Amino acid sequence: DESNKPILLPNESQSFERSVQLLDQIPSYDTHKIAVLYVGEGQSNSELAILSNEHGSYRYTEFLTGLGRLIELKDCQPDKVYLGGLDVCGEDGQFTYCWHDDIMQAVFHIATLMPTKDVDKHRCDKKRHLGNDFVSIVYNDSGEDFKLGTIKGQFNFVHVIVTPLDYECNLVSLQCRKDMEGLVDTSVAKIVSDRNLPFVARQMALHANMASQVHHSRSNPTDIYPSKWIARLRHIKRLRQRICEEAAYSNPSLPLVHPPSHSKAPAQTPAEPTPGYEVGQRKRLISSVEDFTE
């Protein structure tokens, strides 16, 4: 099969070098950035008060330690540790928490760990991170309901609301924008112990962030949302095809390698009803078989 044979790379090609550099910018793992907010007593309706908090309760602090690993920003190499735009020179604080497994990295933009500057009256330095995160974990210690939209931002799609209760338990629920209701189930609340709260809140936030990324990708319907490693695979396959075309153009005697095509017509299947918005969006999480067989 010609399409699977190794090909020689061009010795000097600026377009090839640019493509390789672009490939280096696509990590081999999925990345997520999640905002974390603490809401104190009497702050449920005040964005400024929430963003001005420099610490929270003892249970909130224990919750943070379970979310991930504490890292010092100045020691991080952005090409190895995903920071979601946090500055490593102290502009966004000294520490944050991050978490990773074999296929993804997540960083938490924690408002109480970011510096509260006197010259920044409206807390814009914090909002440029927190307001651009799709998902926020809100530790609501106010005793009042927290409403979506209290923290203004164009991309605040989903809130994971943590409400501490007695007996070391917590109520965990989801809020989302109306255009996200087909992807996020907000109907079920959970009672979770303090011990298990970081794991549950983190998983709910990661799932909500993946759904938000799919939702946000609708602005470019021709580019369905893939995982990062599938995006790398697609980029490599496009690069291979372009090299083959350039080689055939410079030397017409060489065969032009095309991806294999299936001449056999697909079997006719009964027509199915058109899937609704929710089903269609969830299918976009699934990769096409052509990603692996071309």
Rank of each mutant, 00 (worst) to 15 (best):
A205M: 00
L113A: 04
T112A: 02
H262F: 08
E12C: 07
D125V: 09
Q213W: 12
V135K: 00
N11C: 08
Q175H: 06
A106D: 02
S3K: 12
L64E: 01
S52W: 02
S57K: 01
G182W: 08
E54S: 07
P164I: 00
I151Q: 03
D145G: 05
D1G: 06
P270T: 12
V81S: 14
Q281E: 13
G90W: 04
E2G: 07
L206W: 03
V289A: 13
L70R: 07
G149T: 11
D179F: 14
D87Q: 09
I286N: 14
L8R: 07
I286F: 12
K152E: 15
Q21C: 07
G149E: 14
C124G: 14
L64F: 05
L206D: 01
L51H: 03
Q213R: 09
P6C: 08
S263F: 08
M104G: 05
S219G: 08
T293K: 09
R240K: 11
C89Y: 10
K5C: 15
I7G: 10
M114R: 04
R195P: 05
L8A: 12
A201D: 00
D179G: 07
F155H: 11
V192M: 01
V81G: 11
S193M: 02
S15M: 09
R195M: 06
I103D: 15
R69H: 12
V289F: 08
H109P: 02
L64Y: 11
S52L: 04
A265M: 08
K152L: 07
T96A: 11
A231Q: 14
V119M: 11
S219W: 08
H122T: 14
K190Q: 11
L148G: 15
K147A: 10
C76W: 07
L67C: 00
M210Q: 02
P226G: 08
P6S: 10
T293M: 05
L206M: 05
K190E: 04
P78L: 14
F292Y: 12
D133N: 05
P27G: 05
S142H: 01
L130H: 04
F146R: 01
S19H: 15
L48P: 11
N220Y: 06
S142K: 01
K264F: 08
P198K: 00
Q175I: 06
L239G: 09
P252M: 12
R202M: 04
V279C: 13
W229D: 14
A205G: 02
I151K: 01
R18S: 13
L67R: 00
T65C: 13
Q203L: 11
E41W: 07
E144T: 09
H122E: 15
Q154I: 13
A189L: 14
A208I: 01
N156M: 13
N4Y: 11
K127M: 15
S15V: 14
R69W: 06
C176K: 02
S288C: 07
I7A: 07
N196M: 04
A49M: 05
T269P: 13
D24N: 06
N45M: 06
G280A: 09
G276I: 12
S19R: 08
M180R: 02
V119W: 11
C169V: 04
L130W: 03
V39S: 01
Y38A: 00
Q14L: 10
A111D: 02
W229G: 09
H215G: 03
I191K: 01
D92V: 08
H262Q: 14
L206V: 10
V39T: 01
N132T: 15
F199V: 03
F292H: 13
A265Y: 08
K178P: 14
S212Y: 04
E12R: 04
P6I: 04
P164D: 00
S142W: 00
N220C: 08
Y60G: 00
Y29K: 14
A35L: 05
D185A: 03
